[in-house]
Design a protein around this nucleic acid. Structure first.
Length: 558
RNA sequence: GGUUCAGUAGCUCAGGGGAUAGAGCAACGGCCUUCUAAGCCGUGGGUCGUAGGUUCGAUUCCUACCUGAAUCACCA
């Protein structure tokens, strides 16, 4: 639709040279469907032309020249409305389809994006709240890949810091290798929880823990061996969750990667900007916000230091156009500080760093206050989905687990991404597994129904269908909707908000369902049938593409 | 207290200087001898937190206030 909008803008520009073409383009609105496909409000011109907006609209009506094969125009009040002629929609869609330009990613633009997402802490299972960073980051990666960027997908593990001192302390007191081999992360979690209980009455544990972390940083062999073991076990478990979600990374690395260069980084920082010792800690003072801590009083580093080192390293490796940090909104201040340090160090790429923040998932702790594990939630969704699939008796026995996984996980992913990023939201089983309405399975369902029709129609070559035969408003609607996909992608890229895509795919699925209900494809006369199969196929491909950007897979029956 | 974000239908949320403010859920009423009813069609439901200001026009921008959330030095 960008193509048609541009045509409108150019036509208006020829009649109204007072405005730039960009100004015109951005004032063009999408009105309610019955009013047209594009609308140009004339209020702003009233001041310049010293005439009533309504008079301007009537006047401009005659001045604007657009091919009548493409648009029908009319002035209504202060607006000029443009209605796309059906044949122009058909022509555009047909040519894009034939050239396979409809849903293929844009050509590579040679630019890089670095995305830091998921980033769980090792030695703890991935908790449900990690869903947000994981799923948002993955989807933004897909989105920018679709838009033509090369994307470095970085899982920046929390594998360094005082907590490992705590864990080692706990392991030496209450842990064992046998239990670790047997129970994996559960054992680590168990002793970590015990540590936090014990520290209430034995505060001296904390200094022991700090000492162990310091030893780890100093290269103590025993400490490093334990740390390595914890890390290895954790990664194996994380992998299971990522496989369920069908999420991949190009780089799995952690904060530990920078442990050896931190002294150098601190030196580099100190050379360029003012640092000072305050209450024993090394800090960077700011006037407009709280100071950034580089080193604790015991000399151990903090995560701001590691993030600064990581940002510099990533720029050196990827020469990125943007570097995204998909991290909860709680860490807003932290990233402001880190970005400001980079800026003051004189790196002119500091404005390419961007904190893609998101709100919390609430209502997720159990009665006992324990964490809910992401893997458990996914498996629960999958098994509940399986029950629903069995009721329908449409999916073959051999496929059922795979379909249940795709649909169950799809409902969770969609349920997260449909929320605006910065909103907190409540986790609610009933809502997330309600597959009716605005949900992932709803879109997957629309896709599956189309596949079923295509199968029954015995169509192999979609090029045979002639879209010119389609004149019903339901059919034209589908074509326009599909053509609007490019604008949705732009909007999502611009705002880094995925709910534009969830919204779009839901609306498209709804249009497909309405079509499906009103028009029988199989019983249509031959040429018409081919045309209808074609538009359904195109719509389904659009759904599939949109869902794949969200990180949701499609199924052929459900 | 400082900073940041949010307050829109019973609930969860879109939208955003312009035409009658939209979805989903929940409620209610229809629709399965016809390609998947995880669906379709319809009904009811709103002083867009409050008060000012800017504007031809404000739910949208500005200010103040109220309410809620996050954060503010050795965790990440």
């Amino acid at each position: 639709m960008k193509y048609f909008k541009q045509l409108v803008a150019e036509a208006i520009y020829k009649a109204v040279p007072e405005l730039t073409i960009n100004e015109i383009y951005s004032t063009i609105e999408k009105p309610e469907p019955h009013l047209g496909d594009f609308a140009f409000p004339c209020f702003k011109l009233a001041k310049v032309m010293r005439k009533s907006p309504i008079a301007i609209a009537t006047d401009l009506m005659n001045k604007i020249e657009v091919s009548e094969n493409i648009f029908r125009k009319e002035s209504v009040g202060a607006y000029i409305n443009f209605h796309l002629v059906n044949s122009s929609v058909v022509d555009r869609l047909t040519s894009l389809f034939q050239n396979q330009k409809l849903f293929s990613p844009k050509e590579k633009n040679g630019k890089y994006i670095a995305i830091d997402y998921s980033s769980p802490n090792i030695a703890k299972p991935i908790a449900f709240h990690h869903i947000r960073s994981t799923v948002i980051g993955n989807s933004i990666g897909n989105l920018f890949e679709f838009a033509g960027y090369n994307v470095a997908r970085i899982n920046y593990l929390g594998d360094w810091g005082t907590q490992f001192g705590k864990l080692i302390t706990a392991f030496k007191k209450w842990g064992s290798i046998e239990a670790l081999e047997r129970d994996k992360i559960s054992h680590l979690l168990e002793i970590y929880v015990k540590y936090h209980q014990e520290v209430e009455t034995h505060p001296e544990l904390d200094s022991e823990a700090r000492a162990w972390f310091k030893k780890t940083e100093d290269g103590d062999l025993e400490a490093l061996a334990l740390w390595e073991k914890f890390r290895e076990i954790s990664l194996l478990e994380f992998d299971r969750v990522y496989r369920l979600l069908n999420i991949k990374f190009t780089h799995i690395e952690g904060e530990s990667k920078y442990s050896k260069v931190l002294d150098e980084t601190i030196e580099q920082i100190s050379e360029k900007i003012e640092t000072k010792i305050s209450e024993g800690a090394l800090i960077i003072p700011f006037e407009e916000m709280p100071p950034c801590l580089l080193k604790k009083m015991d000399g151990a580093t903090l995560y701001a230091t590691r993030d600064i080192a990581a940002a510099i390293d990533r720029f050196n490796r990827f020469n990125f156009e943007h570097s995204f940090y998909v991290v909860a909104t709680q860490q807003e201040l932290h990233f402001k500080q880190v970005f400001e340090v980079i800026k003051r160090m004189g790196f002119n790429w500091s404005n390419r760093l961007e904190h893609i923040k998101f709100g919390m998932v609430k209502g997720m702790s159990t009665r006992s206050g324990n964490l809910i594990f992401l893997e458990d939630v996914l498996n629960e969704a999958i098994s509940r989905t399986k029950v629903k699939i069995l009721e329908k008796e449409r999916v073959s026995e051999s496929n059922i687990d795979e379909v249940a996984r795709k649909v169950g996980v799809g409902s969770i992913i969609f349920g997260d991404l449909k929320n605006g990023r910065v909103n907190d939201y409540d986790f609610d089983w009933e809502e997330i597994l309600n597959f009716s309405g605005y949900s992932g399975p709803n879109a997957q369902y629309a896709y599956a129904r189309v596949q079923s029709i295509i199968k029954k129609s015995d169509t192999t070559n979609f090029n045979e269908g002639d879209l010119n035969l389609l004149t019903d408003s339901l059919e034209i609607n589908l074509m326009k909707k599909v053509l609007a996909f490019d604008e949705v992608i732009d909007k999502a890229v611009e705002t880094r908000e995925l709910h534009h895509i969830t919204r779009f795919v839901y609306e498209l699925a709804k249009d497909v369902a309405s079509f499906h209900h009103a028009i029988s494809v199989i019983q249509s006369e031959n040429d018409l049938k081919k045309a209808r199969v074609k538009i359904l196929h195109i719509s389904a491909e659009c759904i599939k593409t949109a869902l794949s950007i969200l990180g949701i897979e499609t199924v052929d029956s459900m």
